[in-house]
Amino acid sequence: MQTQPTIDYALHLADSALILGQRNGEWCAHGPILEQDIAITNITLDLIGQSRLFYQYAAACMNESGTAEATEDTLAYLRTERSFKNLLMCELPNGDWAQTVLRQFFFSQFQLLLLEQLQHAGNEQYAAIAAKSIKETQYHVKWSSEWVIRLGDGTAESHEKMENAVNALWMYTGEFFIAADYEAVDVAALKNKWMEAVTAIFEEATLSMPENTFMQTGGKTGTHTEHLGYILSELQYLQRTYPGAEW
């Protein structure tokens, strides 16, 4: 029998992957070039696949403990904004390509460190999902960090776009490392490694690390930016309008 924190944690991990996947999916058919359009949508499919595994686990735990009857679909399509626990970073608008690849880099680098720990968090299901997801995430880190370097160390224009992206996104990175009470991995302990990795890539990309600044929080406990509502209204529209619709 799994307890409420386990369920909440699975939902948190699932929500982050789902919402970022939904966001990246907006690039489908709008990518800067055909090959990159396919690359970003491949990453999207990886993320949505990961979210399914966590939702399925959360649903199984909920059904077993009798808290609620749930399936992966009801968890994705029928929960409201305040019950979503995704990181704020994931729900931010795509902005330009620089902002999209930087968001992916920040998130995937964090997710990689997290999944490595999740393998040893003493939960077989988490360990199995993490083991599968790590391989995908390693590629996401490689792909996104190469784009950060390419644009940061590119032309004056691409460098400026990257700096703007850093300024727009940095305040959403602090939340990664502030633990919610349901988290099974000590996220605060991941901060140094994450900073090291980001610093290394930023150096290569000739980007300056931002000063310590005010950090936004709230996503993990359901307090979101204005953007999440719009994502959910699109994501959930079909199931809300035609309950139980299948295809």
Binding site: H30, N94, G95
Partner: peptide, 8 residues
């Protein structure tokens, strides 16, 4: 809309 995608 294509002109607003933010892509290159």
């Amino acid at each position: 809309p294509e002109e607003n995608t933010g892509g290159a």
